[in-house]
Design a protein around this nucleic acid. Structure first.
Lengths: 338, 338
DNA sequence: CCGCAATATGTTAGCGTTCACATCGCCTCG
DNA sequence: CGAGGCGATGTGAACGCTAACATATTGCGG
């Protein structure tokens, strides 16, 4: 057997021996210290290359007492928004020099989320990003914040909590106002499930816009974000001929509503206008193309990482303004039929 | 300042001091050794509870030379399939006692994927699951496999590579055969982009089914998985009155095709039948509801983890049979118009 | 009630890094 | 030409844990 460089991954000592320097010099090279002479650095770099040396993060984390990790807890990982957010956080985290641990919690039960948080803490993350804008988490935050830096991804955060978000309320106002401007006066809402902050905010935005125009709210049906629930809501709405417009709290439900309206013989948008929320990539190619509210999940993720890294650095609880969503006008909404 | 238990997270030594035992006994308790007397264990457990002790994974990984981590590389994190797969792998990994590092690569460039793999290796993952069934990765696998256990998630793996997958070819045959059985004789295909294994397999399945029935292939258009590309393909197909059925390589493209057909005044399914692939949750609530091929991504993820853990344990290169997809019949495909 | 096995607990070393500090050259300047 | 200083490199210890081994404690047969 040749030296100690055989079975196990090479260590700094192996590299040092090969380059004829001390392990500390290797450390300096690896960490980009400028107190190393050019030719020494080159020798070390060459040895690293030859040995395929890779710094052991565990050893580093142990001695520096820093894991260099960020954790993102998020729900509904199969959906467009959360998936995009996760990817964005991951990428932004990497760019900022952090490893990002993505922790999807498939089904929203308090226990599974708590277990996921435990796992994140076991991994010694330096900050937890909470991409779960559900009421049931608001309690968790307080106790969590005692242990680790926390960033909520949330459009209506409890006071004193660090957060980033997209203005759901404003988005809903945008959608509703658009329908009002088209002349609609009976605008139904297919809301997201109770307990979800975004659902509440969108509903309140719908109500606020109507109130501002002195228009009575149309029928309101609670769905569960799924197209199935949108379909069921749509079937109900289709029975009410006074409804000429529907604002659905997300695109999936909007699409279900459209199908139900079609089946009931109500044309979209000639008889009933439909507006969604999210602007999933397929929204533009539905039939009819869906008017909806676009959220920039990618920017949201980047912002969240920015706030998190700042929090780690100086512990500040700075909360940047909510990002503004944008109305995307397509064919699914039109003037009120006369 | 009281002892060493102040600022920093408590260590085994702190727990040991508190419980009046040695750190090793704490270690035994934490690791569930049965060589600890009941009352001692209770004292230790109490001390752990009181101190809020959490085992330091870095230190553990350092000495055991095992990270306890699995890495999943996956593309298109915003889509239903990959998102579901990622969540499933994460969950199955946790259950098997591994931390799973989810590594989404948003844009498919060789460099970004290689960087992602480097990051995974830096994290000392014990196995890499490659959820990227794109040609450009097949080269990577060989060199990767030298460093770490690799599991490809792939329906047509290179020989000798450990893999799991869903039978894309069979799924495409299912879809095409169904259209043939409905009497269609000119069946177009909107294929996924060149380079993607699944795209190739689905295309070949389409061709194989046609060949088996001695039917000439209809027009073939390559998309990029997006509904936009499906829309463009659909517009082209709509111009060809001989086409009475379309098999699209995924649901998004199918939905784009449907919109294009609608716009061209061709009814679905009365004039043209459309079948998709994936069975995304919204497929059932499109208008018309989409006939498609369902893939069980959750099972796929579990299987991948199972194979990975086995690989870590004994290094076997066992490749379980491909999972069978399932045709889901809905309204978007019907008998050939006479 | 002694001795020996078995069981329960303690002790020591070392995993691969970084940190704090020590040392070694070499150049500068009075 | 020698002291002082600075840049480059080396040394030793420590991070928190587990593995291997050493020692203490218990129980039980003779």
């Amino acid at each position: 057997m040749v030296r100690g460089e055989s079975k196990n991954a090479p260590s700094m000592a192996d590299v040092a021996a090969r380059a004829g320097v001390s392990h500390q010099t290797v450390s300096r090279v690896v960490n980009g210290s400028d107190a190393v002479r050019g030719d020494t650095r080159d020798r070390v770099l060459a040895a690293i290359e030859e040995l395929g040396y890779r710094r052991n993060k565990s050893a580093r984390a142990l001695v520096t007492r820093r894991s260099g990790r960020l954790g993102l807890l998020y729900t509904q990982p199969h959906l467009y928004g959360p998936g995009t957010l996760a990817a964005s956080v991951h990428q932004a985290g990497q760019k900022a020099g952090y490893d990002v641990i993505l922790s999807p919690v498939p089904h929203l039960e308090a226990t599974s989320a708590e277990r996921a948080i435990e796992a994140l803490l076991d991994d010694a993350v330096e900050a937890v990003l909470l991409g779960v804008s559900h009421q049931s988490f608001e309690d968790l935050v307080a106790q969590l914040a005692a242990t680790v830096e926390v960033v909520m991804i949330h459009s209506d955060p409890p006071p004193g909590v660090r957060s980033v978000g997209i203005d759901q309320h404003a988005g809903a106002v945008l959608a509703t106002q658009y329908l009002l401007d088209l002349g609609h006066r009976t605008i139904a809402h297919v809301a997201g499930p109770v307990g979800w902050i975004d659902a509440r905010q969108r509903r309140e935005g719908w109500l606020a816009a109507l109130r501002d125009s002195d228009v009575e709210p149309g029928p309101e049906i609670f769905g569960d974000w799924s197209s199935r629930s949108g379909y069921e809501a749509g079937a109900e709405i289709a029975r009410d001929p006074s409804v000429t417009a529907v604002f659905a709290a997300n695109d999936s439900m909007a699409l279900g509503v459209i199908r139900a309206l079609h089946e009931a013989g109500r044309r979209v948008p000639q008889d009933v206008s439909v507006v969604g929320f999210d602007d999933v990539p397929d929204a533009a190619y539905l039939w009819p193309p869906l008017t909806t509210v676009r959220q920039d999940f990618a920017s949201l993720g980047e912002l969240a990482v920015e706030v998190a890294t700042k929090a780690i650095a100086d512990g500040t609880v700075e909360t940047p303004p909510l990002l503004a969503p944008e109305l995307v006008v397509r064919a699914s909404a039109a003037h009120k039929p006369s």
